[in-house]
């Protein structure tokens, strides 16, 4: 590989090698295992207030995605990672719009929909 070039952004997933890289992947793997097991525990537990379980699951999932981005993709907020991080931020923005926008609009339509029997009567 060429010598590290500090005047350009680094490639996503790159920048780590040798024992440092192995330690990075092992750390991420360990975090991911703990968070996965915590998710499976949280889904079945009764020691958490039940309406809070989905929030806990969401927090654990987002945390684990963050672990993957940092330890497997090596994305940081450092000065030679600006393009990668901005692209990621835009991706998260679009994903949020699509998922939460769809859920909001569909639940609103569902709540305002005419009851099915009334609709049938009007079509006669």
């Amino acid at each position: 590989m060429a010598a590290p070039d500090s005047s350009h952004d680094k490639a996503p997933g790159g920048g780590q090698r040798g024992s440092r890289g192995a330690l990075m992947y092992a750390t991420g793997f360990l975090f991911a295992i703990v968070l996965t097991l915590a998710s499976f525990w949280a889904a079945d537990t009764h020691s958490v207030w039940q309406p809070g379980v989905p929030v806990l699951l969401a927090a654990l999932a987002i945390g684990q995605m963050g672990v993957h981005v940092v330890f497997f993709f090596h994305i940081s907020t450092g000065p030679n990672d600006t393009n990668n991080f901005l692209a990621l931020a835009f991706g998260i923005f679009v994903v949020g719009l699509v998922v939460f926008g769809s859920m909001l609009i569909m639940s609103n339509l569902n709540a305002n929909m005419m009851p099915m029997d009334r609709l049938m009567e009007m079509q006669r």
Partner: peptide, 22 residues
Amino acid sequence: PLPIVVAFGFWLFLLSDIVLFS
């Protein structure tokens, strides 16, 4: 350098793939 351009382009593809999944 080419490796950085290729990896960045592929990173953009992956993000668009995740938008598809979203």
